[in-house]
Design a protein around this nucleic acid. Sequence first.
DNA 1: AATTAAAGGTTAATAAATAAACAGGAGGGT
DNA 2: ACCCTCCTGTTTATTTATTAACCTTTAATT
Lengths: 210, 210
Amino acid sequence: MRKPKHKTVERLLKYLEYVKKKMNDGNMSVFSHELAKYVGVSPAQVRQDLMDLEIKGTPQSGYSVEEFFNAICSHLKCERKTKVILIGVGNLGKAILSYFLKRKSTLEIAAAFDSDAQKTGRIFSGTPILNIEEVEKYIKRERIKVAIITTPQESAQRIADLLVRAGIRSIVNFAPVMIQVPENVFVEQIDITLSIEKAAYFADETLEAK
Amino acid sequence: MRKPKHKTVERLLKYLEYVKKKMNDGNMSVFSHELAKYVGVSPAQVRQDLMDLEIKGTPQSGYSVEEFFNAICSHLKCERKTKVILIGVGNLGKAILSYFLKRKSTLEIAAAFDSDAQKTGRIFSGTPILNIEEVEKYIKRERIKVAIITTPQESAQRIADLLVRAGIRSIVNFAPVMIQVPENVFVEQIDITLSIEKAAYFADETLEAK
DNA sequence: AATTAAAGGTTAATAAATAAACAGGAGGGT
DNA sequence: ACCCTCCTGTTTATTTATTAACCTTTAATT
């Protein structure tokens, strides 16, 4: 079976959420059109995804939620939660921390870091906020491999350098600058402003078409 | 010339940013490899994008920033800023407001709305925060067509209904629920938690590959 | 004057993502 | 027993996105 690509991984993560809900509600099975509606894609798309994962269903009862859950988890390697850290407890950082608190995610934000002494030493949304000076020690001790940067633009590169030196292998960067890292470090750049601009563009498109 | 698709629009918006910088610095021209590095794609990709926009360059001086700027602006229809509103001035809402303040965007957040009387009546990051009860009047008076939802999950659907009733034609929704809207309303769902989970997944992938 | 290097323009090839189409089996009703 | 409907499994087609390859131009160099 071939590895899932970007869009597929997105959908699988969404399916996983829905399936968890169904399990909590005591359901034993789920249909492709339910998943399709929840995720916002066509049922055909769902079926094809599930085919790739080699999950079988029946026309009568759809797919077994248990089998489904296990299959996705093993493909996404999310049996045990990956520990990540977050740097920069500003508005965006706080927003992310509280999102993770509410949602049972495949990840766990083990700690957050900031340079502002007013923020450090407290717990926010269940996550301890530590001083940025401790981050290197922390990464090494806890063997953290993934970090989220939500600092201001100006500090992003400096923080990235620090993280890489300490052993971080992959970074999710929300600061609106391209950070430069060694080749063997993975970076995912997420630009919220741009996402909104894009949405607005396509909004216009569809308005005109009607 | 055919209309730019999703990924292309993303890149064009990034090019635009870089070109603005170059113009501010007094540069007259820009090369494909510069843009490529800034945006994180191959120079070939850049050239192809520019070809589609019918922007011509020369091997010696690359592309004219002015021509470039005008071409992108006209294709993205961003000559005059589109006014949008934001609902929900929590952590994420504030983060977005401050991002837009710093960055010269193609959009302008004309007003923000919240139900908390402690927040309303003030100005945050240059944007007035009004009471949610005024939103319908505001949308109609200012003919706003695009709205950003950054409320808690629980209120998202209710707010969406309200917005649609008031005349909003397209919504960027950050609340982690699929909102249901009439067919003629455009919705862009942005799930930050999911983006991070996805990034973590591909991080793992690349780690293993090495 | 010829050569080389750097950068753009174009076309073709490949890969990824999405959509469409259709056969087959199990229930349920007549 | 027959037909109808619903939903799955699979295949094929189509559209989007990305990459690679190759040619051309022009300035600098030898």
